[in-house]
Write a protein that binds this DNA or RNA. Structure first.
Lengths: 202, 202
DNA sequence: GAACTTTTTAAACACTGTTCAGTTTATCCA
DNA sequence: TGGATAAACTGAACAGTGTTTAAAAAGTTC
């Protein structure tokens, strides 16, 4: 019967929803198997029928993050000028990190999802690669239209990603408070503005 | 008697040395109080006579990292041209992260040391601020000599720090493997080279 | 209704950071 | 030197963690 499969998938989703709830509301420290299952009224051992281990749960959560980020990027396909689209992607990326700081951490900082990948046979970070490819395509588009002369697509793409990730993760971990201008979020936006102007003159 | 104080300081250092050993050799996961004290033959409860909690131990460890980084930066004071010094600082920063990946994580990624700061009365991240100020001074020197016209010292400094931190932390967490050129370390060095050329034309 | 399979759980294991009531050890003063 | 006082240290426990295992409950099939 396929009712079984449907039920199993249902419980799986319930576990993930509860996990997401605990994780975003109470943080990584409080995200324990026992705290997750108490929401849906199951025993701790039950989750091991649906997931291999905690790393797989965290991995599944990090995929949900990528789904949302991808959605935000797709809207920007309407921006035809590749440089403008590139800038907008950066702003969208930063805004995503402001909206979902915990999720961002899971996607781009935490060891947990990567740990799960290493446990598998092929350590391919598909979600990360797809997102990076979106960036790479846009940078390639810029170069095709004459922007960034003399720069390498691969290295430049990684540079741009590192740029925004660096700002966002320093801010996220409470390490951006030393710049004396305005709020910590502002230093991120201001510095990104500086970077946009850098790109203009690249 | 001051023999007491000396003894106490001695044990404190022994704990920190053992902690550093476990942390760098076996990773953050295995860095437990019990694993630390078994090296020096003490009971787990003993460390709470010398440290408030584990966060304080990790904080002390992260300071040792800053001491080494500062040492590497100080050598570069001999480089008189500020732009050249800035570039060299970036390379030194990256090299430091390659040499001590676990320590780097503690200094610029991990929540642990920041948690300890929050527990204190004044959450001032002195080590981070001092290092950032070194960067700020160099950037200011560049601007004084006519480099980076029209750019803001504060925002540009944060941008540069974010740039190298982003590359390094993405690489450190195993998320830089998607670029198809050479080894993961190479993509960091290549992208940084790209950034150096960007700065030249800023 | 019996046989069989899928799902769920209670209980335990080996860990973790931390606390607390004692015990041992060292220092000080008479 | 002996006894009081303070410092240093420990064993045992608490509450928590991820995970495994055997057994029980529930659902499906004949």
């Amino acid at each position: 019967m396929k009712k079984r499969k449907k039920h199993a998938e249902n419980i799986r989703q319930q576990i993930l929803e509860a996990a997401m709830q605990v994780y975003t509301d109470r943080g990584i420290e409080k995200t324990s198997i026992r705290n997750i299952v108490e929401i849906i009224g199951y025993s701790p051992a039950a989750v091991y029928f649906y997931f291999k281990n905690k790393a797989e749960i965290m991995f599944a959560l990090h995929i949900k993050g990528f789904t949302e980020l991808k959605r935000r990027f797709e809207v920007l396909h309407s921006v035809k000028n590749p440089l403008e689209r590139l800038k907008a992607m950066g702003r969208a990326y930063i805004q995503f990190s402001f909206d979902y700081p915990a999720l961002y951490d899971l996607m781009f900082v935490s060891e947990y999802p990567m740990k799960h990948l290493m446990e598998g046979n092929e350590p391919l970070w598909r979600q990360g690669e797809a997102t990076f490819d979106e960036l790479r395509q846009t940078v390639a588009g810029c170069i095709r239209q004459g922007y960034f002369p003399g720069h390498d697509v691969e290295a430049l793409s990684f540079l741009i990603w590192s740029m925004v990730h660096g700002m966002v993760s320093l801010h996220n971990s409470g390490r951006s408070e030393k710049a004396q201008i305005a709020t910590p979020q502002d230093i991120v936006m201001l510095s990104y503005g500086e970077f946009e102007r850098m790109m203009d003159r690249l």
